Computed example of a mutant assay.
Amino acid sequence: MRLTASGGTALLGGRPLDAEVEESEGLPTEVSHALRQWAWVAGQVADAGEESSAREVPLEDAEAIAHRGQQLAALVAAVRGESVEYVDPISGDALPIGPDQWQDDDEEPTPWATGLTAAGFVALVMLGLDLALTGALRTAYGWIWIPANVLVGIGLAPTILLLSRLRFWRWISYGTTVGLTLAWLGLITTTL
């Protein structure tokens, strides 16, 4: 299976990528869409290189197109479960890419040491702050500390949920959740 682009069109197995090819090759819609975008950009860059007086594509553009094409070829290989021959639309160089070469750029190693340290520190800070707030409210107003704690939890919930989806900040959200939970458990046990 060959993957290349020509004239702004992605070619898979020598055929233009259309709904029929997409279906016969079993490509997900997102992959087909990414291939079409890549081919369009490659076509635009190649056309601009032909129109310039130097008749040459800038090296940065050629490298970016080659890199993205190789990523997509690896993705197609992973989806299909077989090797794909990637042919660079700018240079014409061919490169075999296997299904095991797909690597999501968003995947990075989990920073366990940094994350657990940050989560532990935030948990201790939240535990101390919640206990201090609750102690002050309990001393001054009695049972008002219960709805105040509920409001603190409800107020922080959306932020904690949003932060839990971000790489480093998820550790902060975990620490906040653990700190508040420990504070509430401690308050409940001392109250009963």
Rank of each mutant, 00 (worst) to 15 (best):
M1D: 01
M1K: 04
A10E: 03
A10G: 07
L11R: 08
G14A: 09
A19M: 13
E20T: 15
V21K: 10
G26E: 04
T29S: 12
E30D: 14
E30M: 14
S32G: 13
R36T: 11
R36D: 11
Q37P: 01
W38N: 01
W40C: 12
V45H: 03
D47E: 15
A48P: 08
E50C: 08
S52K: 05
R55E: 14
V57L: 01
E60G: 06
A62V: 05
A64C: 10
I65V: 10
I65T: 06
A66I: 01
R68S: 10
R68W: 08
R68N: 09
A73C: 08
L75C: 13
V76Q: 00
A78E: 06
V79Q: 08
R80L: 09
E82H: 06
D93Q: 13
D93L: 11
I97D: 00
I97Y: 04
G98P: 00
T110D: 05
P111G: 07
W112M: 08
G115P: 09
G120W: 08
L124G: 15
M126D: 11
G128M: 05
L131P: 00
L131Y: 05
L133C: 08
G135V: 03
R138H: 03
R138L: 02
T139Q: 13
A140P: 14
Y141I: 09
Y141E: 11
W145L: 08
A148G: 01
N149A: 14
V150L: 09
L156N: 06
L156V: 08
P158H: 02
I160V: 12
L162A: 15
L162P: 01
F168Q: 12
I172Q: 07
S173I: 07
Y174C: 10
G175D: 02
T176P: 01
T176G: 05
G179S: 06
G179K: 04
G179I: 02
W184F: 10
L185Q: 02
L185N: 03
T190N: 14
